Simulated assay, not measured.
Amino acid sequence: MNGPWDVHSDCTPDCAAHALPRVPAARIARRGAAFARTVRRALTDGERMAEPGRLRTHARALLDALDIPVEGAAALTGGGETGTLVVVNHISWLDILALLAVEPVTLLAKREVGGWPVVGGLARRAGTHFIDRTHPRRLPHTVQEVSELLAAGRSVAVFPQATTWCTAEAGTFRRATFQAAIDAGAPVRPVTLDYRQQGLPSTVAAFCGEDTFAGSLRRVLAARALTVRVTAHPVLWPLDGGLDRRELAALAARAALGGRPVTAVTGGGAVRPAAPVPHAPPRDTPAHV
């Protein structure tokens, strides 16, 4: 019997492929040097990196060094007395940078992320909460911890697929962390991340299976016109609709993985649109929202 975090992805490093010809070697070298310099600057911030403004600045700078603009949503949360549970599909280590570049939220990630080169150190300094999937008995404690963060007004971003896939349509959402939103009376924001090269769907950013960070970074450094789009779907209100965690996870997955926005269910079976999400204006340069 599978445990709550025992998830298998069919994706392998072979799934990652360029949709366009690679950039010249000179540009790869410039990107690599810029990325290394930006990582060093970020790490020198130490504990101060957890400050929201600094966190966003560092995330944007790292993506700028890689020539990866962020398109789409200008915000992930909607304010209010509680925080928002932001549930996101998982493709790459770049997902973390993309989310933090849009809005610095508390991240909940698998323990292995903390050991990733570069990103692991940044994630730890940014105050990420790590899940130890080898100890499923700690699951109730993790849910309680997330619920307390939400109740205290802190928004938390989680990857309910529990592993990475090469596209935004694969996998399913595990339902455990959705209980935290129910317990805290907090809204849930489904978010889709997808990667493109000059508008073409691309798997070049995928970090799957037995892939290494070095191998993934080399592909990203060589990628031509790579962008990441952040699509924030309407908020789900679990308490208004009397939703349990299974229903909530299914609705969130329908939006985030299928790209089919849903409305928020209210008491009595009625539906109402959730708060709109602002979008960034078009840009002609690789700047970020």
Rank of each mutant, 00 (worst) to 15 (best):
4 P>I: 15
6 D>Y: 15
10 D>P: 00
12 T>R: 13
13 P>Y: 11
13 P>C: 11
15 C>M: 05
15 C>V: 01
20 L>R: 12
28 I>T: 15
28 I>S: 09
29 A>Y: 02
47 E>Q: 10
48 R>K: 10
49 M>A: 08
58 H>D: 05
59 A>F: 07
60 R>A: 12
64 D>M: 07
70 V>Y: 03
72 G>P: 02
77 T>G: 04
78 G>A: 15
79 G>N: 14
82 T>D: 04
83 G>N: 04
87 V>R: 00
91 I>H: 05
93 W>L: 03
96 I>D: 10
96 I>M: 14
102 V>Q: 00
103 E>L: 03
104 P>Y: 00
107 L>A: 14
113 V>R: 14
115 G>H: 09
122 L>P: 01
137 R>T: 13
138 R>M: 14
138 R>V: 11
141 H>Q: 14
143 V>G: 12
144 Q>Y: 13
153 G>M: 09
156 V>G: 08
157 A>V: 07
162 A>D: 08
163 T>F: 03
169 E>G: 08
175 R>C: 05
176 A>R: 08
179 Q>Y: 04
180 A>Y: 03
180 A>G: 10
181 A>K: 12
182 I>G: 06
187 P>A: 15
193 L>M: 15
198 Q>W: 06
207 F>I: 00
207 F>Q: 01
208 C>M: 11
208 C>Q: 05
208 C>D: 03
212 T>P: 02
213 F>Q: 08
214 A>G: 08
220 V>M: 05
221 L>I: 13
222 A>M: 11
227 T>C: 12
229 R>T: 14
229 R>M: 12
239 L>K: 04
242 G>A: 13
243 L>M: 15
245 R>P: 02
252 A>I: 00
252 A>T: 01
255 A>W: 01
258 G>H: 02
260 R>Q: 12
264 A>N: 10
266 T>S: 14
273 P>F: 06
274 A>M: 02
279 H>R: 10
